[in-house]
Amino acid sequence: MNQTIESIEHRRSVRNYSPEQIKDEELENILETAIYAPTGHNDQPWHFTIIQNQDLIKEINEGAKEAMKQMKVEWISKLGSSKDFNIFHGAPTILIVSGRKDATSPLVDCAAAVQNILLAAESMDIGSCWIGFARFYFINPDNKEKLKIPDENEVHFGVSLGYKIRENPKAPERNQNVYTYFK
């Protein structure tokens, strides 16, 4: 099978990581794929903040959970209140993905970059998880400044990266009734 298709079909969100840090060369290769994602009008609006400092990762986790506790959506508030929940699942590396607010389609462009990151990581047998909860930490604008995220950017996503503790689970059944053909 084609390696790209194999990576797409095998990739799963990983929520169990070894504490061992991924190699710098692996991280650089993964990041390189992000900037090759398609963007509306070739805006390339993204900015990637790479964090491997465990104290800072813990601070972002706790800050996001504090903000989550205040959410009106019950399951988010409840998850934020869980002392055992870690939004990054113990990953040794996290990425914060932000995009320029004035770009044509920054949210979609950043999502395409994240998909490239996830697929590149899988192709290297590195676990990853797309983390929407990371943006809650940045409700406090001081946190954006603290992490040197450009002022003109909005934080959209986080990504956790690390070596997998166990193999990917089998893919859940996919709904195949989603195509309409006109030939």
Rank of each mutant, 00 (worst) to 15 (best):
Y17V: 07
A67C: 06
E6G: 00
N2V: 01
A113H: 07
R12C: 11
R174I: 12
T4Q: 11
D102W: 14
E25N: 13
K170Y: 03
F157I: 06
A121F: 02
S7K: 01
M71C: 12
S77I: 11
D142R: 14
E62D: 13
N16P: 01
A64T: 00
Q70C: 02
K170M: 12
G158H: 07
A111I: 02
I94F: 08
S128P: 00
E6C: 03
K23D: 11
V73L: 15
T93I: 13
N53F: 05
K170N: 15
D102T: 10
I149M: 04
D102Y: 14
P38G: 12
E145I: 05
I126A: 06
E66M: 15
E167I: 06
E9T: 13
K69A: 01
L31H: 04
P38A: 13
S81T: 08
P169G: 05
P38M: 08
F85A: 09
T4R: 09
Y17M: 07
E26T: 15
S160L: 10
I96C: 07
I57D: 04
I117L: 07
S123A: 08
D142A: 14
A113P: 06
Q3H: 14
E59S: 11
K78T: 09
S123K: 03
P169H: 05
S81E: 13
H47N: 13
D43V: 04
D24G: 12
A111R: 03
Y179A: 00
G40H: 14
L118G: 00
R100M: 06
E74M: 09
R100A: 03
